[in-house]
Design a protein around this nucleic acid. Structure first.
Lengths: 326, 326
DNA sequence: CTGAAAGCGCTAACAG
DNA sequence: CTGTTAGCGCTTTCAG
């Protein structure tokens, strides 16, 4: 900025006014400074300007990791940013995202200055006590407190998944659950149990295992379930990643999918359509969720009233991993 | 930080030393300060610290927009960040990403302070004259100058796509091109022409149109081609988005895909498998590209020697949108 | 209308 | 070992 000021023969203060479109600059000065700015390709440093002004027009999206789930949300938010005038800054702390409370750390790291507001994706805790407006997507504790929340209807989706398997004639239906400390996983298991009960089917507790939502953690429990004395004919996995892993395990133990075992997932991440066979799953409108969260946050930043909780519907996507019980 | 200092009974300078692990702090002081830090949940502001120290351990990924292409790269970079100790900051300027030279602006906005190095995705220009180390992915001008570049073999991929159609018996093969100002689009068209020539097939220039790489811009030219006097039996589209749009247009004008028209895309973004029919396409190893770019940048930051250009292979993915000419 | 000066939160000499 | 001081690049009073 000093360079610009020198070359335009003005002070940095004046350059700052031009850059920020403040009133009180003569037209001739304005033109001259703007010319120099474009000649030099000058752009204000986000770090420095935010430090002083506490307004950046940047919205942060804080994620533990860039994986299929969070990047779908990102696409949705990006498409909704349109003419809002905000820019998007997605942040992931690499290996540190594994630690509990990462969202609070990222928030204080970026929040004081760099970003005006934040969307936090599947945070473990949501204590709104951070200076800036925050919207949570699918928080682990469920919607609570004063932080607006966007999520999908996990319970209804799980009911839908289980009913689909039941409608195909399955009776022995297993469940590869998610992380039990997460609200979404609890709701999905509850939906499974509710649908089973509604159909008058008993739940064999040896067929309900903890898959931890990840491919690495789902393999062992899935194997145990599928090699047990009385294996299920169908499995509802709590998310697509563990469903895909379950299909792999089934194959490893000599079961064909869907001939010998039907598998249904949850989320409908793009990867679920790419595997073999393509996965039947429950679709969460991830892009919509991202877009809605962004709109909510923008409203919040404009000090408009916003709903405290948005719950979007899920739907069944039938592909090749489920079939009627022979 | 002032709060921490006060509560621990030390100066902010000492707190800074503790936070940054500098030598010269008594163990007792260190313990006390660290206790207060974790009590208060303090985390240094990225903006402020970077302003002063010019070292942040943050790598920036600069994209025009978060869409399927760039988010795949993001997943790759995220998976490669592992134990490097760096964090990832992906930046997109919303609507401003459409302007030419966006990458230079983002770079000066973030580069001076916030990020130690940057990966720029499909930049329009690559003038390495920005303070920080930069790696380019698929730059519009092709690899050039001193900026290390990672891309896929666009020419070979286009040859492969065209040969696939030829092998299926097609003779009248159209090409929905990308943006002619982009190197990748030029190479893909060149590959198409080369494969046609090698097979002794003439190129009907009315069958080579400019689709601009986007769904919105590809529709009209695709329609013109398909409703012309002597329509092609197969189309090679320069990327998946325009291929998908071409399939839609075909359907609108009464052509069935693949029965009446074969369509092949390029990129293999996840969306290409999700459409109906699933798209046959040329796969770019997008995640690999992202991961390699990150490794290159880390090497650069560690002042190691790096190759100036990494070209990754493409491959054919056969799905449902192409078939043998009846 | 313009510029001098103060200060955002932090780090880096340096002095004690 | 610890605190004082200066200043990163910018914005913001406020006086000229």
């Amino acid at each position: 900025m000093a360079d610009v000021a020198r070359q335009a023969g003005v002070s940095v203060a004046t350059v700052s006014k031009v850059v920020n479109g403040r009133y009180g600059v003569a037209q001739s000065t304005l033109d001259r400074v703007q010319q120099v700015i474009s000649d030099l390709g000058y752009e204000a440093s986000l770090g420095a300007s935010s430090l002083r002004s506490h307004r950046t027009n940047v919205i942060g999206i804080l994620v533990a990791e860039f994986e299929p789930f969070s990047t779908e949300l990102l696409k949705g938010a990006s498409s909704a940013i349109g003419a809002t005038g905000y820019e998007l800054l997605a942040y992931s702390g690499g290996a540190r995202g594994a630690e509990v409370g990462w969202e609070r750390r990222y928030l204080s790291r970026l929040g004081g200055t760099l970003i005006d507001g934040a969307i936090i994706v599947t945070p473990t805790v949501v204590d709104a006590a951070n200076g800036i407006p925050v919207v949570a997507i699918d928080p682990h504790t469920g919607p609570s407190g004063s932080t607006p929340t966007v999520d999908a209807d996990n319970f209804a989706g799980a009911v839908m998944a289980t009913e689909h398997l039941i409608a195909l004639g399955h009776r022995r239906i297993g469940h590869v659950g998610g992380r039990p400390d997460l609200e979404s996983a609890r709701l999905r298991e509850a939906g499974y149990r509710s649908a089973m009960a509604a159909a008058g089917l008993p739940v064999d507790e040896s067929l309900v295992v903890n898959g931890g939502y990840r491919a690495e953690t789902a393999g062992q429990p899935a194997r145990a379930m599928l090699t047990g004395p009385d294996r299920p004919t169908a499995v509802f996995a709590a998310n697509d990643l563990s469903a895909i892993r379950t299909v792999e395990v089934a194959r490893e133990v000599g079961l064909r999918v869907p001939e010998d075992l039907s598998v249904i997932g949850f989320d409908n991440v793009p990867e679920s359509a790419l595997c073999d066979p393509p996965l039947t799953t429950i679709s969460q409108p991830l892009r919509d969720i991202g877009a809605q969260a962004l709109r909510l946050l923008v409203d919040l930043l404009n000090e408009r009233e916003v709903p405290t909780h948005l719950r979007l519907p899920t739907s069944l996507v039938e592909r090749g991993s489920t079939r009627r019980l022979a």
